[in-house]
Amino acid sequence: MTEKTFTEAAREALSDAMDADPAIFVVGEGAGERGGNFETTAGLYEKHGPLRLCDTPICERGFIGMCTGAAMTGARPVVDFMFTDFILDGLGELINQTSKMQYMSNGRLKMPMVLRGCIGIGHSAATHHSGSYYPFFVHIPGFRVALPSNPADAKGLFATALRGEDPVFFMEHRHLLNLKGPVPDGEHRVPFGQAAVVREGTDATVVALTVMVHHALQVAEELSGEGISLEIVDPRTVAPLDVETILASVRKTGRLLIVDETFMPCGIGAEISAHVTEHGFDELDAPIKRLNGAHVPTPYSPSLERAVVPDRTTIEETVRELLAE
């Protein structure tokens, strides 16, 4: 184990994979000599050169199409978008081609492609640089979506993404990029579809995503002083989604809250809620609750930004409401 930041841990996974597999290459604006807007590729240009650390102009749809072709023909592209918002400029390519190619080729073509970018509200980055949008990608057959919440998972999930055969969205919350934590040295993979129970408890289950895991843990710690025992589940990937671990937790607690910074309608909370009512109705002692970011475009002002995302206060309030149900 070595103490590393989230970004360092993910970069270690990328660097190790690039050393091992010459088919891996990175494209993106500033991904080359600059080392990535968020240092996602720092130091790799010097090692692997401009062919494998490929700077691009601002033309998302173009380089997504190019990378889709590269993946179809045996390479392993990693597309570094800086911000997830920019992925939206290439959605036509992604949904109409990238996600369907394995199906349309009857499995003869593989689509090993990693699409990475920052998500999250909270740096006065305004409405074009604060999006998360991962529920879109969960909706489309063929995509996988990883949402690491800590450095060790960042390394492990990225390593798994780099060795799979499907297009994977690897989403990095901006608040977590400099978060430090112990990271296993050497080879470390976290399988997709395996949630982590990050805190055990008996009174209610809180499923939290990315940065919300940390808020939920703090709330759980505070409430433990009152004898309230929360179980916190971090799904780690939402496509595939580990429904079984969530159900097992609800079987224990009877109560469920899903905390997700993204918008509520048709979101991950709705998906989890539907699974639990379908498969765990008799386990429920209270209606399922969801806590999401406000359903509005992200504001620029820091005080308004704070008002549109769940925080410790709103999580605690919602937990209390859930326990009073």
Binding site: F281, L284, E325
Partner: peptide, 29 residues
């Protein structure tokens, strides 16, 4: 609640006679 209903059944309790403490008087586990 569904969970309380199941608990009542396995404990052999007639829940119609219970006083609920959940929101709006719902009987909970």
């Amino acid at each position: 609640s569904p969970r309380a209903r199941r608990a009542a059944q396995s404990a052999g309790i007639d829940w119609r006679r219970l006083q609920g403490t959940g929101r709006s008087g719902r009987i909970v586990e």
